[in-house]
């Protein structure tokens, strides 16, 4: 859900805007390493994919439905730096061409739903990858857990931002309980669907999944003797 104009006060909005500019700037330099000269067309198509995936509604229960944020999914699929670029571009386009999310809240939206979900999703994913055995089947699990954790963390970030620059004095503990509680549930959906989607992609084209590269590189060519009947 996009933060609109007027939700956070002006100084906080300017501060998050500056933070978002810094994050996107660093990602622009680093993404070249992930994609070299393919950056523009590939990141553009991945951004269009994220935009489309956010339109894909998943039924939850009794008529309600949710949709993916896609930050952690993008991080695992194309690498964290490119993912930050893609999600940021999605929010800019949604703001300027679709009037979704206020222009003064653009930095807030990029920091919360872009940078936070990508960074948290990626860090949890890498941590699990380091701990768990290096097998291809583990990659979707790690991606799913990363996606699950990323959503409540983003909600917590929102509460922190609201504590700094909120425009109404809601008791913060109530806000935190409500936000984190609801978003833990949303995170379950995000995690399960990220797990399933990454699993589906790895089954077909494991070479496209950035997070699976280490596993693929460590795999050795094995020649299996033909089974004798």
């Amino acid at each position: 859900m996009h933060v609109p104009d007027g939700f956070l006060d002006a100084p906080t909005s300017v501060a998050t805007g500056a933070a978002a500019v810094a994050c996107v700037g660093v990602s622009l330099v680093r993404a070249r390493r992930e994609l070299d000269d393919r950056t523009a067309p590939m990141a553009g198509l991945v951004a269009a994919f994220i935009f489309a995936v956010q339109m894909l509604n998943f039924p939850v229960a009794s008529g309600t439905s949710g949709h993916l944020l896609g930050g952690a999914l993008a991080a695992v699929l194309v690498g964290p730096w490119t993912a930050v670029l893609c999600t940021s571009v999605v929010f800019v386009v949604q703001c300027l061409l679709f009037a979704d999310g206020g222009i003064t809240a653009l930095g807030t939206n990029i920091m919360l739903m872009g940078v936070t979900t990508v960074v948290v999703g990626w860090l949890v994913f890498r941590l699990l990858q380091a701990v768990l055995p290096k097998r291809l089947g583990v990659v979707p699990v790690a991606a799913g857990v990363g996606a699950f954790v990323s959503v409540p963390v983003a909600a917590t970030m929102f509460v922190v931002m609201y504590a700094v620059g909120g425009t109404a004095d809601i008791p913060l503990d109530h806000l935190a309980t409500a936000m984190v509680g609801v978003h833990t549930l949303i995170g379950v959906g995000e995690g399960v669907i990220t797990f399933l989607a990454v699993g589906a992609i790895i089954a077909v084209r494991p070479d496209l999944v950035h997070g699976a590269r280490r596993v693929l590189a460590s795999r050795e060519l094995e020649i299996r003797p033909k089974a004798v009947a």
């Binding site: 393919r38 067309p41 590939m42 553009g44 198509l45 991945v46 269009a48 994919f49 489309a52 995936v53 894909l56 998943f58 993916l68 699929l77 399960v192 669907i193 797990f195 399933l196 989607a197 990454v198 699993g199 589906a200 992609i201 077909v204 084209r205 496209l208």
Partner: peptide, 16 residues
């Protein structure tokens, strides 16, 4: 739906 999303990613990436 997740498999659809996966297929969509592969198609988008290959188009890229």
């Amino acid at each position: 739906l997740a498999r659809s999303a996966g297929a969509l990613f592969i198609r988008s990436y290959e188009r890229g």
